[in-house]
Design a protein around this nucleic acid. Sequence first.
DNA 1: TTGTAAGCGTTATCAC
DNA 2: GTGATAACGCTTACAA
Lengths: 335, 335
Amino acid sequence: MKTPTIQDVAQRAGVGVGTVSRVLNNHAAVKPTTRETVLKAIADLDYTPNPHARRIAGGKSYTISVLLPVLTTEFYARLLDGLETAFQEARYDVAIFPLLDRSRLERYLASHTLAYQADGLVMATYNLTKVFHERRLRTQQPTVLVDAHTDDADCSYMDNLAGGVLAGEYAATLPGGLYAIWVETELDQLFTTHVFEDRRTGFHQALAAAGRRVETEYTASFDTLAARNTAAALLDDVQRREGGLPCTVFASADLLAGALLDEARVRGLTPGQDVYIIGFDDQPWAAARGLTTLHQPVEAMGYEAAQLLLSRLGGYRGPARARRFQPHLVVRDSA
Amino acid sequence: MKTPTIQDVAQRAGVGVGTVSRVLNNHAAVKPTTRETVLKAIADLDYTPNPHARRIAGGKSYTISVLLPVLTTEFYARLLDGLETAFQEARYDVAIFPLLDRSRLERYLASHTLAYQADGLVMATYNLTKVFHERRLRTQQPTVLVDAHTDDADCSYMDNLAGGVLAGEYAATLPGGLYAIWVETELDQLFTTHVFEDRRTGFHQALAAAGRRVETEYTASFDTLAARNTAAALLDDVQRREGGLPCTVFASADLLAGALLDEARVRGLTPGQDVYIIGFDDQPWAAARGLTTLHQPVEAMGYEAAQLLLSRLGGYRGPARARRFQPHLVVRDSA
DNA sequence: TTGTAAGCGTTATCAC
DNA sequence: GTGATAACGCTTACAA
């Protein structure tokens, strides 16, 4: 019992394949009654059009490819959620191509593999300025960037600079010396992301405006253990210092803030009293642990990215558009 | 400048499309010289065959769909690595379909969407016994299960029972009372996974064989915060007890063991001296933190799953096969 | 409003 | 060995 084709549907409905195709694509005027008949035949046979055939026929495949990095963080799960929701509403299927490492990215960039055979492309996090500039993105499909931006393409991204400013403005109102922990970005050129750089710039801008300065800045790689060690080093320094407590720390990612929270509690310090801690991300556990942090509308960013792409697919031909999303401060016990 | 087709290649090489197709698919005998000419034309035009057309033409699309859950853990990153490596070697493209929630799984199960249009299907973690039994998997493509098993399908999975046995055998040799922390599985029927159940069964088997028993068993949900709280509760109980230390704890996932490591250090207890801790998973940080744990050959499991599928695609028609992978104990400072 | 037929880019089956 | 040519399942003119 093979899967039904458009022929089978046409036959069962007693119409031509053209008509079936028309109702499938909401084309022109099809007489309501015939439409009904066709729809019924489709339901009876449990027919679904073959996307490959659709694509081949010069039409659309109703398929979107999403290229994104490692995938092991909450952030991408949320991003995917936003993207999928929007595409699903528009009846597009989404396939994901995880770029596990640089060689994978190169591979996708270099060949016309499956990822490029979709109607549109979403690229996450990679700042492809260079790639676009060198015209190495060898595809004619509409492409949109999420969590990254370029002048040459539609993009939907988080305003990390504004987030840094919010953190700085709030930190300036808190007691004690100011400290900051940044994320070490070891990503190479291709994988460049301005995320943490932007947060830092914004933070410093706000402090400058408030006439304040940071005592010491620390850097940790994006990893629980490293974060914990950095947190310990920071608290060592602060506690060693005369009148070092209370102090205020901006940890530029919740992963960092969480480690600091742990380390502070171990030392018998109370967050929001001895150590004021501001995180960034608002991870799922942040509320439970009372972490003051910057919440990012990640799903919304993904959703909007999808909308930009869908508008291109719908025929929009205008210049590249940028959608910027604003993080907002969520004040909890830790600060 | 549109993408070149097989026609363009044929024309440039001065041969028929059939010949080009033959060299593309390593078919029959093509005269070495013509083969060269064709290959050159392909290179010149930077031609890549269109997978949709290939699929449509009744052939293969050289595409594999991988259906897997959330994606936010190291485990899946490693699994994907194994799968991708194998498929890439065989020149297959892989597309990922993340099943973010139950409704997504239902959707993929219920329709003939893109995921089903691939040459083969890999399903991770879901125990699809029921789905297979009810014939709800509406596809004729070869399917293989990873990190799960059924009698009805090829599968590649970890022998969690044996892992539990190893943990139990080793724990039985360690001093003090025995404790265990299990993972609470809140997944519903469709998402059933026997992983933690198996680890527990194996652990108890080994203890029984050694004539030992567990003092108390704890349960935590798979979440850092919950794990930490459970670890605290466990240590409270142990420390309250007369001669409670030293003791030995089997934490059935490294996430749990890590929390216990933290909590023990906070209390001034030395792992491997006051508290003997055995984890499960061998996460990347386990070595750095000196955690004794069970290492799983996850990449190998993925690689083998791919091989099973490839053999089906290569024409294998025999009965379902099962490949079981053995975890092994890695002894470090914590026990 | 609807049926017919010509593609779309491949593979596979023929003859030569 | 190799070149035509008929599928494959669909969309889209073009007629009717």
